[in-house]
Design a protein around this nucleic acid. Structure first.
Length: 254
DNA sequence: ATGGCTACGATCCGTAGA
């Protein structure tokens, strides 16, 4: 069983890349972020032709999340229950025996900004929501763009990024609070090469210089961690013409 | 050289991303 997450940065623009990647990587479940389209424009038929059912929560221009699955998607829910939010950032479904929660965590823009405050309150609400999901389901995967680089080794230039958005101490502590619920960063369950990232700036030749951050993650509950056999980041789609700035992150389970 | 790109929805520039 192969679970992936990918911030596609416009599903409309990236649909050809996504369809090709599904055929090549053969994931069973995929969480998508930054669809940037309304539900009425979701390419359900194209994905069905590729072998995937869809659950989605979109909006015009910004945000938007989806879960694709080769097996039926059950008990779909959107948003964080009890947390009022216009922004479509969360979708959950049960598929293949997994409770899958797809997240597009806020960027936060700049430390100290209104959006930063929103980011931290959003993470607090996510934590409470996940605590409940972990009580209800033994096999939970939280996959998405977390917009947090958990440690300095997840940052190409820790000195330049020190204290900045995506790496600031309050953001990292919000990340650690999720781990304290009993979730594990699937990527760190395994020996990994150095300087592996999931996002590279479009500017400054970011990808060519490997000037990236690891901000896309698959978190797994204890029972799923036991069954996790690999976690990797597939840089191949980032090399294509007109790529997303994020690469797919994959976790595999026995 | 402190920018440099991309997507979007709106105009011919602003907002947002990270």
């Amino acid at each position: 069983m192969k679970l992936a997450t990918w911030n596609v940065n416009s599903l409309k623009v990236r649909l050809p890349h996504l369809i090709d990647w599904l055929a090549r990587a053969q994931p069973d479940i995929v969480c998508l972020q930054e669809l940037k389209l309304e539900d009425a424009k979701f390419p359900r038929a194209e994905l069905e032709a590729a072998g995937y059912q869809s659950a989605f929560s979109g909006q015009k221009t910004y945000n938007g999340v989806a879960i694709l699955s080769r097996s039926p998607l059950l008990d779909v829910s959107t948003g964080i229950p009890g947390f009022q939010d216009e922004q479509k950032r969360v979708i959950a479904a049960t598929a293949g025996g997994l409770r899958v929660i797809g997240v597009y965590c806020p960027n936060g823009q700049a430390v100290g900004s209104d959006k930063y405050a929103y980011k931290l309150s959003w993470f607090a609400a996510l934590k409470d929501y996940l605590a409940g999901e972990l009580r209800r389901h033994p096999r939970v995967a939280v996959a998405g763009d977390f917009n947090v680089a958990p440690e300095d080794r997840d940052v190409h230039d820790p000195k330049a990024w020190e204290g900045q958005i995506l790496v600031s101490a309050p953001e990292r502590s919000a990340w650690r609070a999720l781990l304290e619920l009993g979730l594990s960063d699937s990527f760190r369950l395994f020996e990994q090469a150095e300087k592996i990232y999931s996002w590279w700036d479009y500017r400054m030749l970011g990808f060519r210089r490997n000037a990236g951050l690891r901000i896309d993650h698959v978190l797994v509950s204890a029972e799923l961690a036991q069954r996790c056999t690999a976690s990797t980041i597939d840089k191949a789609p980032r090399k294509l013409e007109r790529p997303s700035d994020h690469a797919p992150v994959i976790a595999e389970f026995s």
